[in-house]
């Protein structure tokens, strides 16, 4: 069906309205981070900076231990995602093939339970074990997020893979592990990509584990940015620059891998 020019115009306007809340917000965020303080405190607000001011970024990068917090985030998220894939992908395969729906239900419940309800005992446990100065408490608690995501996405992915090929190689004498490694795993690569991206984003964005479990030197980026908001009372420019730096990896990933993200966020929901 082709559209009349009027219909095209209406569609264009409607699309514009739908994308503008997201688009304008991030545009304003970028604008805040690039303006000198004098523009940020001006009224009426200034959208286009009078001069592009990158000093907000350099201030954040140089003076606020940004490198350390970035490394912390990278270690916590990297480890939690790697561990989750390592145990979650085989588990999802097992659940899908053994049709262990009760186990899938446990994963579902874990996804629904409020994070704070795990945190009180884990906090006391880590304190008791004397781990609070290391990144281990955060790596371990981030598994609460990453393992269910990986199992959830991979289970529905493995269920879509045809079983015939696997059965044929079983008859040829391959054991279960070989079937998994040599046949199912290579086919599951697209699914693993989706699981990896979403587990990475959820772990990277996580805030609540950090504010409870992180000390001054073990903060991840979201916690560090939150603390600079409350305790140091710095001005809007550097703060917006920090906000952008924290979320930039995720936003880039969202744009580059939007197909996988859409697929992952709706897996299990639309299926």
């Amino acid at each position: 069906m082709s559209r009349t020019p009027l219909q095209k115009l209406v569609l264009f306007l409607v699309v514009l309205v739908v994308i503008s809340p997201a688009f304008l917000f991030f545009l304003w965020m970028a604008s805040l981070s690039l303006k000198p303080e004098i523009d940020n405190t001006a009224y009426p607000p200034v959208l286009i900076p009078s001069s592009l001011d990158w000093s907000n970024y350099s201030a954040m990068l140089n003076e606020h231990d940004f490198g350390r917090y970035f490394t912390n985030s990278l270690i916590v998220t990297g480890s939690a995602v790697a561990l989750a894939l390592l145990v979650g992908v085989p588990a999802a395969y097992g659940i899908a093939r053994a049709k262990a729906h009760k186990l899938a239900l446990v994963v579902m419940i874990a996804r629904m339970t409020p994070a704070l309800s795990f945190l009180i005992p884990l906090f006391l446990l880590f304190q008791y074990l004397g781990l609070m100065r290391s990144l281990w408490p955060q790596i371990i608690t981030h598994l609460v997020v990453t393992v269910p995501v990986v199992i959830w996405i991979m289970t529905s992915f493995f269920e879509t893979l045809p079983i015939e090929l696997e059965e044929a190689s079983r008859i040829d004498g391959a054991n279960r592990w070989q079937v998994f490694r040599l046949i199912a795993l290579p086919l599951a690569r697209p699914g693993i990509m989706v699981a990896l991206i979403l587990a990475f984003i959820f772990s990277w964005n996580n805030f609540v584990f950090g504010i409870v479990l992180a000390g001054r030197t073990t903060r991840t980026l979201p916690v560090a940015v939150y603390n600079s908001l409350t305790y140091e009372q710095i001005s809007w420019g550097p703060l917006s620059a920090a906000a952008i730096l924290v979320t930039l990896p995720v936003l880039l990933l969202t744009i580059i891998a939007q197909k996988q993200i859409v697929q992952g966020m709706t897996s299990g929901a639309v299926k």
Partner: peptide, 24 residues
Amino acid sequence: GFLRGIVVMPMMATPVAIALVWTM
């Protein structure tokens, strides 16, 4: 596809970063 990526950004972005900008 690209525009859908933009529309999806709010739910993928780091909540604390978003909260900061909304506070401003």
